[in-house]
Design a binder for these strands. Structure first.
Lengths: 251, 251
DNA sequence: TCGAATTTGTGCGTATGTATC
DNA sequence: GGATACATACGCACAAATTCG
């Protein structure tokens, strides 16, 4: 019949040792050659087994150092709903306060960046139109948990006090509040979550394994006249964050 | 310096030939040995290149038959918002009608299934409590595009006309409408989308490549007294569906 | 109907690169 | 700088699936 392939047997073996606390979170495993010899399999079989467990978040491989038992890290809850848009403060800070986590973010804004094709389509403007681009790294307890790149057409905010999302008197207030300051009422947001693997750069920024799973959210805010006024690409690593949508039901 | 590894060069080569319409969607590629000889690389290098393109949805491998150029398949838009819950008809049918697609689904209901641990937690009931479990396969134009397994506590619907989601006078009306019939008002839903790879069974049911990316949504409906009355695991294949959340902003 | 040839898919080994200590 | 260990690339052998005579 179908007997288990060696690398799955080794994976179970490793999993069991972790469950039995032979190896604790943070411990370094013996080298692959050592495990292979002990279990009577080739070095490569051990590698396959470890790769499987790494992809499941059980182990963690560090080049040049060794393979470690992953530390169970509490996942940050990212709530996305209408209730999240408070009159004061940024949505992200609301999320973090609820968890009693130190929240912070770093950002870099570039003014008058020509819109790439996809962004232009999402904003309903011509390709190359000037935009204000802001990239964010959101931190929870000092660790990066979320990346975001926001695009606002210069035609909407240009020449106003809120042209820079993270500058001026309304810095960090969130898109909805900032737009309200210049008379733009945002009526709704559209979010399109899509699963994919992290790029090498994203993995490095988020402190996750290369090619780990992330949710890539394309978010667009629309004003009450139906025109898009901001769009963002948000990258949420599955290992560290759980995304929650709250949907009110009206009948 | 870092020169491109052979398998990436071959991947680009293959990609280019598809872009140049040397190979059209649906065509079968030459065998790996043939491509390898033609490009002056080993058979395995071609395999790696093809695996890469398969994981990106550009190619499609069929065991024993060959490697094919993937047919571009229009993605179904799955809208998830409060506006979707109409007084009549099921949410899924609303989605499909908007696309002028033939919509349909198959379902199988099992009554009095003991709740597994995770489901019990989500429903706020004890493990093993009886539930009505219904599994769905949603189809668009005859092709499966979405899987769902729904759990309702027997304590909520037991003994009423709506105990069977797909039976009785309110069959297929959707959870919100069915619950309304027995005086249970649903106030909101919570959805938790999580990226992961498809299981072998899911891939087979959805007609997608093994281990293709899916979004696994854990959805729970809450009644106006704050108690969960239904929860479901929904599997949406990224290759065939785009998920859209519409979030109203109230200030 | 059946079986042989072809092709993809999987498991595993080895050589080399590269990061860490 | 050297030793160690993980990461990557590549090759071979075999199994599974399909196709076709």
């Amino acid at each position: 019949m179908s007997e288990q392939p060696p690398y799955l047997r080794i994976a179970d073996e490793l999993r069991q040792r972790i469950a039995e606390h032979v190896w604790e979170p943070g411990d370094r495993l013996p080298s692959r050659a050592q495990i292979g010899q002990e279990c009577g399999v080739g070095e490569n079989v051990v590698r396959r087994a470890q790769e499987l467990l790494i992809s499941q978040g059980v182990l963690e491989g560090r080049a040049g150092s060794g393979t470690y038992v992953a530390e169970p890290r509490e996942r940050v809850r990212v709530v996305r709903s209408s209730a999240r848009e408070q009159p004061s403060g940024s949505p992200f800070r609301q999320d973090m306060k609820a968890l009693r986590l130190q929240s912070d973010w770093e950002s870099r804004t570039d003014a008058k960046v020509p819109a790439p094709a996809e962004i232009a389509t999402r904003l309903g403007i011509a390709e190359g139109e000037p935009c204000v681009r802001t990239t964010y790294e959101f931190l929870a307890d000092g660790k990066p948990v979320q990346l975001s790149t926001s695009w606002e057409p210069y035609a909407v905010t240009g020449g106003t006090l809120v042209v820079l999302p993270e500058g001026g008197p309304h810095a960090g207030a969130g898109v909805v509040n900032r737009m309200a300051e210049i008379g733009v009422t945002i009526s709704h947001a559209v979010e399109q979550p899509e699963p994919r693997h992290a790029t090498a750069e994203e993995a490095s920024l988020l402190g996750i394994q290369k090619a780990a799973l992330v949710t890539h959210i394309r978010r667009t805010y629309y004003s009450d006249d139906g025109r898009p006024v901001e769009t963002a690409d948000i990258v949420v690593p599955a290992a560290h964050c759980e995304i929650v949508y709250e949907i009110p039901i009206n009948r």
